[in-house]
Design a protein around this nucleic acid. Structure first.
Lengths: 110, 110
DNA sequence: GCTCCTTATGTCGAATATGACATAATATCC
DNA sequence: GGATATTATGTCATATTCGACATAAGGAGC
């Protein structure tokens, strides 16, 4: 393989070649927030469809009402992991999780 | 609204109505693992396309080579958050992140 | 074989996310 | 109005995840 040469040339400082499609920190954070809003909406929607209270869902997840509330508010203290796990626990498929990550969340207002 | 009555009937014990599509804990864990494998593959693939080393990517992420290695191995000690952030930082769109969550990961072998 | 580069694995203190609890705010009924 | 149910917000001790470091393991070229 002839990677060595190219690697030495490209990626030398920071300007790696090809598409140059790195996001900055701010853009990344914005994307994460949108993504989390999408998950939050999905959790709220699914819980609503089941006619469950936050406390019931909290119990199902082995968690608490307050954490569910924060989850649905896309609070900065809740991880993507928790939201994803919650959706899966409520019966969402991986594809469904994916789709609510892909779509721009409805509730954009602050 | 007439929710009260229905809520009292449904959701009484745990058998909430409609689709009854709750996953058990095991199934949820399995789904999480698959999902993480998909993200891990995506990180590895993107890094490869950039011809970056794990150390370079670690530096870009404000992290370290070892964490990138664990990330690409879908190690249990790495969060979905970190993987998602890494992909976004490398320029992936929310949709691209979603698609690699949706698809069943190639590398199924242990 | 040895050297150099890259990746894998284990461990640590520090940083962050967690469940739990209290309590405030917001409905929804009478 | 009050009573009751549900949701929002703040705080805290514990648990998990973090970056960092050391070091082993795997390859590529000599």
């Amino acid at each position: 393989m002839d990677n060595r040469k190219r690697k030495a040339l490209e990626a030398a400082g920071w300007k790696v070649g090809s598409a140059a499609d790195f996001l900055g920190l701010d853009e990344e954070e914005a994307a994460v927030v949108e993504l989390k809003l999408g998950l939050a909406d999905a959790v709220k929607a699914r819980r609503g469809r089941r006619r469950m209270t936050q406390e019931q869902l909290g119990r199902l997840l082995g968690s608490s009402q307050s954490r569910v509330a924060k989850m649905e508010a896309a609070d900065s203290s809740v991880s993507i992991d928790l939201m994803v796990r919650s959706l899966l626990r409520m019966g969402a498929s991986r594809k469904e999780v994916a789709s609510c990550i892909a779509e721009t969340p409805r509730r954009r207002a602050a």
